[in-house]
Design a protein around this nucleic acid. Structure first.
Lengths: 223, 223
DNA sequence: CGGTTAGTTGAGTGCATTCAATCCCAGTGG
DNA sequence: CCACTGGGATTGAATGCACTCAACTAACCG
């Protein structure tokens, strides 16, 4: 995955003021864990981070996958990270001092607005995903997931029907609120329906309209 | 339900500047519908509003119940309300002009911060609820719902183990991502376990610890 | 007093889960 | 070079939980 749009909502110059350091994490390492004292906010340069809430008995709900250009680790509860952030692939990210980040957004009016807008967008995407998890069947959920991924890639200028799937079936399952086996079976159904092809590390959408139809209930981008 | 904390995050004086009018809605009327041109933002004085996303085939995910003192209807997509807001009980609310609301928060630095904090809190509560819907069994979900309601009432100073349930089983089901009958059965199970009593319009928590244990996975307030 | 709506409960079905077996591939060491 | 090993993915078989459909009750309202 390319590393463009590294600045995101912050401008280049502003980003420099907040910059604290860069770091890499290997696949399956944690950038931060729920309950740890809230340290830096992270901006992903390359790689994918899964932000999740984990239950005492080990169950895990992945709240979102975070891609290059996105900020993660900003939510805190009583001075501690609210969720955990796990590197799904090898990750390269910038750390921003949380204190400076806060002071900075407080001081710049337009930035505060951008922060609000970003939070509102996240709130909307989480709400949409809650509808996916709460209302759709497993096959519909899988379709919705692939649609979302497709839209995500296209927004970043990566046209084409081949979607890289760096996350495991386990991750996808925990994102969609089903077991890994169910996620796998759902993909198999989509393949049997002639909607996708499955290769080793990617999915090829062969019937984009059919995919959208299955995910229709959500319809985030056919307005 | 009492109408205290009517100001919420805004101060009294500020609220007056934005005030546009008061209105009442009967039970089951809509304050706003998804897709309608984004009109006012609403601040609930008395009553409860269910904010929901509805799928073309009629399925509905209730994203949250909004109580007196809370703002709703602020999320918009391309100039239209993103979700629908339905009066669960008779509702009395203030309307605030969206344009003036935006201008106002943009102009006042501290207010912008409050808006961000509010959005962040909402984001967290939606994320928690996504975990409930994605990971818990129906009985656990019911327990989590009652815990949440209990905490909500207690935050507003209403001690006591009697929880008014103004919403129907249908509403509760659509909130928890199960069918109405399943919600009803889940309550019956809790009753059979000696954890709650069910009266006509309320639930009495007879074993608060037991309830919390069932909802434990979520544990939003045992830190 | 009928008509309607909310809630509960039963019976049967179906979909997702659990448990287990197999396959494939990448990495490792003989 | 190839056998060995471990992790991810797929698939089968059986279970169980939630869903569907339906009956019935209780409350409310005309």
């Amino acid at each position: 995955v390319k590393a463009h749009n590294v600045c995101g909502p912050l401008g280049q110059d502003r980003q420099r003021e907040l910059y604290e350091g860069r770091q890499t994490w290997r696949k399956r390492e944690f950038l931060f864990r729920a309950g740890d004292p809230a340290g830096p906010v992270f901006k992903i340069i390359t790689g994918i981070v899964a932000v999740a809430k984990r239950l005492p008995d080990g169950r895990r709900q992945i709240l979102g996958f975070f891609y290059p250009g996105e900020l993660c680790g900003y939510l805190e509860t009583e001075g501690r990270y609210t969720y955990e952030g796990e590197a799904i692939t090898d990750v390269w990210a910038c750390s921003f001092s949380r204190a400076r980040f806060k002071a900075f957004t407080a001081a710049h009016r337009d930035l505060a607005e951008i922060v609000s807008a970003t939070l509102a967008r996240k709130l909307e995407s989480v709400s949409t995903h809650m509808t996916v998890v709460g209302q759709l069947s497993s096959v519909e959920r899988a379709a919705a997931f692939l649609c979302e991924l497709k839209a995500h890639y296209e927004e970043r200028g990566l046209k084409g029907s081949t979607l890289a799937l760096p996350m495991t079936r386990d991750d996808i399952g925990d994102y969609l609120g089903v077991r890994m086996e169910t996620a796998s079976r759902a993909f198999s159904v989509l393949k049997r329906l002639g909607i996708i092809d499955i290769t080793d590390t990617a999915v090829i959408v062969t019937n984009s309209a059919g995919l959208a139809a299955l995910a229709r209930p959500i319809a985030s981008h056919d307005a």
